[in-house]
Structures are given as C-alpha cells and as structure tokens.
Amino acid sequence: MTEPPFLSATRTAYDAVAVDYAELLTPELREKPLDRAMLAAFAELVRAAGLGPIADVGCGPGRVTAHLDALDVSVFGIDLSPGMVEVARKRNPGLRFEVGSMTSLDLPDGELGGVLAWYSIIHVPPELLPTVFAEFHRVSAPGGHLLLAFQTGDERRHIEQAYGHTLSYDAYRLPPEHIASLLTEAGFVVTARLIREPDLRWDRVPQAYVLATKPTAIDEKGLPALTAGRAASSRGPR
C-alpha cells in the first residue's frame, strides 16, 4: 500500500535536518516556562492515573521525551524519521525510541496512559486529523491523557528552507477550536486549553496547547463521562 505523500515528504525533510534541528532547539524548552508548565501538568495527570506509559509521538531528537522522563513518568518516543530516531537514541541512550507513524501506531489498544503530540500534528493535512485522533484514542487507556501543542492559525505553509537546509514539505497552522471539536468527535473530553502569545525568539504566531482525556465511562445519554463516579455525582456546580 502506497503511503500518503505527506509522510514521505515529512520523513525526507526531517531526516535531512535531524542533527542541526537537535542542536538548534536544545535550549528552547528551558526558555519557555509555560511550555514546561503544560508538560508538568500533563506528567502529573498521567502519573496520578497510573495506567501506562506516555508515547511522545513525533518525538524528534527526544528532547521533550527526556524532559518527561526527568518528571518521573514512564515515556518512550516514536518518530516518522529514522534520522531523528538515530539522533534521539544517541542523545538519550537510556530511553526507548522507535520509528513509526501517528497515522498507524504499532501499539495495542488501550496501551498508553498518555499520548503527547508536541508540534507533530502540524504536518498532517487537516482532512486526515480525524484519522490521527482516532488512532490516539485507540491506543489510550480509559482515563488516559492527551496533550497537543501546535501553532495557531488556519493555513498551509510550504517550507523550502529550514535549519540551514533546502527542503520541501508542508506545515499547517491550526484553529484551536476546530482541533478541540475534532478531539471531541474522536471520543476525547477536552479538559484544558492554553493560547500563548509568541515568544519572538522562537515563535511567529500564538501557540496552542490542548489537554484532553479518554473517558472511563459513557453516561445514560451516550455521552462520555470522565469517571463513573463523576457521571453519577449529585453535587451541583461550585
């Protein structure tokens, strides 16, 4: 079966830039406190749920995978680019990294306590995002958590120069409300959203973070509930 063209283009681009990308982005996370705060909250939720590891899907050179590992959660990385996976393994020899695609994850149903897609859904054509989110839902355990990060907007950008290389691949800026709606349609419950203004050292547009969970129960109306106890709770709003 022939893979979608965007996968081939994205793989080729990131294979080409893997070493330089890793070097250039090494200091980024330590200069972004709100990014670290979102990752810390995500790690705390996954750790408290105690359901399984986190898959860092689109992990690149493993910098965020390593950050999560330092937050005392079980985590491994998956990336489309063999070049990125090679760099990730060299930089983080104690962590697990695999080659794979978010469109078809080689993982059992309900395997994961957490799924992280940190600026990795941005290369998926918007019409294919429901397929990706369905796959994230499939591999998540009931009660598991999902965190997405992406650039806001509503446009396709064709990239021909990046990280000192001539390339040819697409990246998409995405509307946060639409992404939240797609996650709901995929069966997740969106629990938090953050829009951060651009850090001009690194960003050109506002950045979005969406946190969601896979429900553990379905209520009598067929709607997802975060927990069976919460669905049955008689407490009013506070």
Score class of each variant (00 low, 15 high):
Met1Cys: 05
Thr2Cys: 13
Pro4Val: 05
Pro4Ala: 05
Ala13Asn: 06
Tyr14Asp: 00
Asp15Pro: 01
Asp15Arg: 02
Ala18Val: 02
Ala18Arg: 01
Asp20Gln: 15
Tyr21Arg: 05
Tyr21Ile: 00
Glu23Leu: 13
Glu28Ala: 14
Arg30Ala: 15
Asp35His: 12
Arg36Ala: 10
Ala37His: 04
Leu39Met: 11
Phe42His: 00
Ala43His: 04
Glu44Asp: 14
Leu45Glu: 03
Val46His: 04
Leu51Ser: 00
Ile54Glu: 01
Asp56Gln: 04
Asp56Cys: 04
Asp56Asn: 01
Asp56Ser: 10
Gly58Trp: 04
Pro61Gln: 01
Pro61Cys: 03
Asp69Leu: 14
Ala70His: 14
Asp72Asn: 13
Val73Thr: 01
Val75Gln: 10
Gly77Met: 02
Pro82Trp: 12
Pro82Ser: 09
Met84Glu: 06
Arg89Phe: 00
Gly94Ile: 13
Phe97Tyr: 10
Ser101Lys: 05
Ser104Glu: 15
Leu105Ala: 02
Leu105Glu: 01
Leu105Pro: 07
Leu107Thr: 03
Pro108Glu: 13
Asp109Leu: 08
Glu111Lys: 11
Glu111Ala: 14
Glu111Ile: 02
Gly113Ser: 13
Gly114Leu: 00
Val115Lys: 02
Leu116Asp: 06
Trp118Ile: 06
Pro126Leu: 04
Leu129Ser: 05
Pro130Cys: 01
Val132Arg: 02
Phe133Tyr: 13
Phe133Gly: 02
Glu135Met: 09
Arg138Phe: 11
Val139Gln: 05
Ser140Phe: 07
Ala141His: 12
Gly143Gln: 00
Leu147Glu: 01
Leu148Gln: 05
Ala149Asn: 00
Phe150Lys: 05
Phe150Gln: 01
Gly153Pro: 04
Arg156Ala: 12
Arg156His: 07
Arg157Ser: 14
Arg157Asn: 13
Ile159Met: 08
Ile159Gly: 00
Glu160Met: 14
His165Thr: 07
His165Val: 04
His165Asp: 06
Leu167Glu: 11
Tyr169Asp: 09
Asp170Ala: 11
Ala171Pro: 03
Tyr172Ser: 10
Arg173Ile: 09
Pro175Val: 08
Pro176Asn: 04
Glu177Gln: 14
His178Arg: 15
Ala186Met: 09
Ala186Thr: 06
Ala186Asp: 07
Phe188Ala: 04
Val189Phe: 00
Ala192Tyr: 02
Arg193Cys: 10
Leu194Phe: 08
Leu200Val: 12
Asp203Ser: 02
Asp203Gln: 09
Val205Cys: 09
Pro206Arg: 06
Gln207Gly: 06
Tyr209Ser: 01
Ala212Val: 10
Ala212Met: 09
Thr216Trp: 07
Ala217Glu: 08
Ile218Asp: 08
Ile218Met: 11
Glu220Asp: 14
Leu226Gln: 11
Thr227Lys: 06
Arg230Ile: 15
Ala231Val: 03
Ala232Pro: 07
Arg238Gln: 08
Arg238Ile: 09
